[in-house]
Structures are given as C-alpha cells and as structure tokens.
Simulated assay, not measured.
Amino acid sequence: MFKNKLVNIMLIIIVALTLVGVVTLVLVNHLTKQPDANAEPTIDEIIAQSIETEEITTNLLSNDFVRASFRIHVDNKKALEEIQKRDFQVENIILRSLSGKESSELAGPEGIEALEKQLKDQINHLMQQGSVVQVYTTSWVIQ
C-alpha cells in the first residue's frame, strides 16, 4: 500500500480501533435498551395476564335479560392469581352491575363501554395484589 511500513501499521491500528469502538457502541446501545413502560402490551401478554369469565345470564330492571361473558386483563401475574381466586366475587360484581341496569342503558357501544369501565373500577376496588387494566366484553346478547 504505502512504501513506509510505519504508515501502514498506524493506518491498520486506527481502522482496528475505529471498528472496536463502533462494535462496542452498538453492543452497549443494544444491551442497555430498556423496554418502554408505556408501550402497549402484545396480544400474547394480554392473553397470559387475563381471565375469561363464564357466560353470565341475568335479568335486567326492564324485565329483559342479558347473556354476557368478559375477559379481564390484569397488570401482573400476582394479580392474575388473585383474580382467579376471587372469581366468585368478580361474578357477583358483574351480576349486581347488570341487574341494576335497564336494556336501554346497555344498548350500543357506549352502553357496553360504560359497563366495562364500571366493572373495571369495582373490581379494582376489590384487588389487593395488582389492578385491572381492561375489561373486554367477549359475548353479548340482550333480549
């Protein structure tokens, strides 16, 4: 390359140090990357940290009846264990909430959303190990 051996050796050392520096920088950035706490959970995380209720049928105030089931997503494994143990209390909350409503209050997406929020708040009041992230309605029939 160059006629002087010293220039060749210096050039090789500079290139080697640059490569080591770039590799080190990439590894440090990759290994110290923290997961975003505000990131949306993946579908696998939601399924792993949620419980499906049995189908619940109850009368409404308006002499109609509703048949519904829900998936309750909690924020951690301890909360999942707790809510599995409290399944009878959760079903009681759902039954009381549904039986106190009229079919007109539950009609449409707004009614379902309001019920999901109410259930989330009431179940969170019950929880000690964690909290409910979201209540999803998985089946819904009003007659």
Results as ranks from 00 to 15, higher is better:
Gln89Glu: 07
Ile83Lys: 02
Gly108Asp: 15
Asp64Met: 08
Thr24Glu: 12
Met10Asp: 02
Arg86Val: 03
Leu60Asn: 08
Glu52Gly: 04
Asn92Asp: 04
Leu61Ala: 05
His30Asp: 02
Gly108Asn: 09
Arg86Glu: 08
Gln84Cys: 06
Ala48Lys: 13
Thr18Arg: 03
Lys33Ile: 02
Ala37Trp: 07
Leu61Thr: 10
Asp36Pro: 03
Asn29Glu: 10
Ala39Leu: 11
Leu106Asn: 04
Thr53Leu: 06
Leu98Met: 05
Val26Cys: 07
Arg67Phe: 00
Leu11Arg: 00
Met10Cys: 11
Ser103Gln: 07
Phe65Asp: 10
Phe70Cys: 03
Gln49Cys: 10
Ile9Tyr: 07
Gly21Phe: 13
Ile13Cys: 11
Leu98Lys: 06
Leu31Pro: 02
Asp87Leu: 09
Val7Gln: 07
Val90Ile: 12
Met10Phe: 14
Thr57Gly: 14
Glu82Asn: 14
Phe88Asp: 07
Asn38Lys: 13
Thr42Tyr: 05
Leu19Cys: 07
Arg67Thr: 10
Ile46Thr: 10
Thr42Ala: 04
Thr32Ala: 05
Ile14Gly: 01
Asn29Lys: 10
His30Lys: 09
Gly108Tyr: 13
Asp87Gln: 13
Asp36Trp: 15
Met10Ile: 12
Ala68Gly: 03
Val28His: 12
Glu45Trp: 02
Leu17Asp: 03
Glu105Lys: 06
Ala16Cys: 14
Ile12Gly: 03
Arg86Gln: 08
Ile9Met: 06
